[in-house]
Design a protein around this nucleic acid. Sequence first.
DNA 1: CTTCTAAATGTTATATTATTACATAATGTT
DNA 2: AACATTATGTAATAATATAACATTTAGAAG
Lengths: 132, 132
Amino acid sequence: MQKEHNLSKNQKIIFDLIDKSGGPMKAYSILFSVQKKGIKAPLQVYRALDKLVEIGKIHKIESRNAFIACQNSSCQISKATAFSICESCENVSEISNSKLSKYLSNFSDNSGMKYSKYNLEFFGLCKKCKSK
Amino acid sequence: MQKEHNLSKNQKIIFDLIDKSGGPMKAYSILFSVQKKGIKAPLQVYRALDKLVEIGKIHKIESRNAFIACQNSSCQISKATAFSICESCENVSEISNSKLSKYLSNFSDNSGMKYSKYNLEFFGLCKKCKSK
DNA sequence: CTTCTAAATGTTATATTATTACATAATGTT
DNA sequence: AACATTATGTAATAATATAACATTTAGAAG
């Protein structure tokens, strides 16, 4: 049962942009693209991004300082994310593999720490780039 | 068989500082600390950090833009890293769990991509912070 | 429908993180 | 010694992100 989040004006503009782009986008490139829609300042972008991340509509690719629309409909909250990143063309895709997420969600070591969240980034060459 | 890397002057200064700190350090806090040793510019710090990451003496905590000394003697190259991060006190430690690393190193999905590297960051509350 | 509150917005300034470009010096190899 | 590679020094600037403050909008409670 997915909670419906009514996105605000800025949130919707920015989510739609990222979603339509189909890939990761950087904050200042988003800013540039939405200036014609009246969003003028970095903070307006970052605030929308923060909220979108919080509700799981987008995820942050930490190693790239970029944001991508969630490609996994069951992912309501960004608390368990995994991505594959091509180091040549920088293509990013979200990995939704139930075994992997089960394994990591249940992972515990001997530190006595209970993990509530994780982010995993895999790097390599995608099919296309490998065959070049 | 561990390759011996002869660190250069700046690399050694910066590695020693991070190593002795026992935790993650940020680039500009490193810069501040090493100014008395003659390292004056950000680039000098970033260059040393880049090299240290490349040879696996330190790792970058992507979600924190911080660098930590490798706590895992068998880790020559930063190609398979996992960390646990306390979201309250920001304590970070490197996870060395052979099952986990084996699982992730062998992970493959149906994207046809062969992963050569990964970085995993777990978040939660450490023992101390949990009991507060 | 009004009062209250929480969330979102707008705006300016500034902090933090990282790289470009170019010159020089030290180190290792043949 | 000549060459190539790696490291250093320095100035400028680019890219990423937040602080502080004023105002507005949207929901919830009476």
